[in-house]
């Protein structure tokens, strides 16, 4: 039977003062030691000093020294499980090759928003088709829609991915702006791609239309849906188009899996 069941321990004045002094001294110590650089030991030293202070608070102020084993076990087990948590996450991250982490001075942001830009991306051209082909494979479109656009990619078969070789039956229509709309909003099992750049979206729209017969043309009205005024030299693009600064799939694959 634990001794605490009948005994309310009263902490003596002298003890609590001694502990207070101890805490002050060790606080001073940790600040003082921080002036020196022990390299990799900085962190463990600081944590050790903190733990000494923590023990003093736990044992005396919180009364665990005078309490029963059960309360001690309860509290210390918390640290044990915390340690377990840290251990496995640490093993995961530290086993990653260091080349996966960006060197200092390089920001994720810069790489994401790169890529060519086009004066009038809603109009088809050789350059934009070439870029569209790049995007088609970088964004893994081919995994559903197939390498040749027949809708026979391994992920796409199960969900009926569209074949781009059909001239008919496109739910949103076959004008470039209709395909752009599908990319913006998604359609059924097709996810939306708001995270790739405006140029990339137009480029891949032209590219997929290129698999099939000549697509119907856009007019001012259909382009106006996306804030484009074809009578202007740059179409008025850049106003009201939101681009999400998020990692593209190819970037993530390269960083996390291939390295």
């Amino acid at each position: 039977m634990s001794k605490d069941q009948h005994h309310h321990h009263i902490l003596a004045n002298s003890t609590s003062l001694k502990v207070l002094l101890f805490l002050f001294v060790f606080t001073f110590l940790t600040v003082f030691i921080a002036r020196f650089d022990f390299g990799a030991l900085n962190f463990p030293i600081a944590m050790l000093i903190a733990s000494a202070k923590a023990m003093a608070v736990m044992l005396y102020f919180m009364g665990l020294k005078y309490d029963d084993n059960q309360n001690r076990a309860i509290f210390f087990s918390g640290f044990a499980f915390f340690g377990l948590f840290v251990f496995f996450v640490a093993v995961d991250f530290f086993a990653r090759p260091s080349s996966q982490m960006p060197p200092r001075g390089q920001s994720f942001f810069a790489e994401v928003t790169g890529g060519p830009s086009f004066e009038r991306p809603w109009e088809v051209s050789e350059e934009i088709l070439a870029y569209g082909r790049e995007v088609y494979f970088d964004q893994a479109c081919h995994t559903c829609h197939g390498d040749e656009g027949f809708g026979d990619g391994i992920a796409g078969i199960a969900i009926g991915a569209r074949s781009f070789h059909d001239g008919e039956g496109w739910k949103n229509g076959r004008r470039p702006s209709d395909v752009y709309k599908t990319l913006m909003e998604g359609l059924g099992a097709m996810p939306a791609y708001p995270t790739i750049s405006v140029a990339a979206r137009w480029a891949v729209s032209h590219f997929v239309l290129d698999f099939g017969p000549e697509p119907p043309a856009d007019d001012a009205e259909s382009l106006a849906r996306f804030g484009i005024d074809p009578s202007l030299a740059d179409g008025g693009l850049g106003s009201g188009e939101e681009e999400r600064a998020t990692i593209p799939v190819d970037f993530a694959i390269e960083r996390y899996i291939l390295r």
């Binding site: 940790t30 921080a34 600081a46 944590m47 000093i49 903190a50 923590a54 608070v57 736990m58």
Partner: peptide
């Protein structure tokens, strides 16, 4: 609450 700060202080401010 004091315990948490005992760890936070060196971790964030010193190291």
């Amino acid at each position: 609450v004091d315990l948490v700060w005992i760890y936070l202080f060196p971790l964030l401010y010193l190291v």
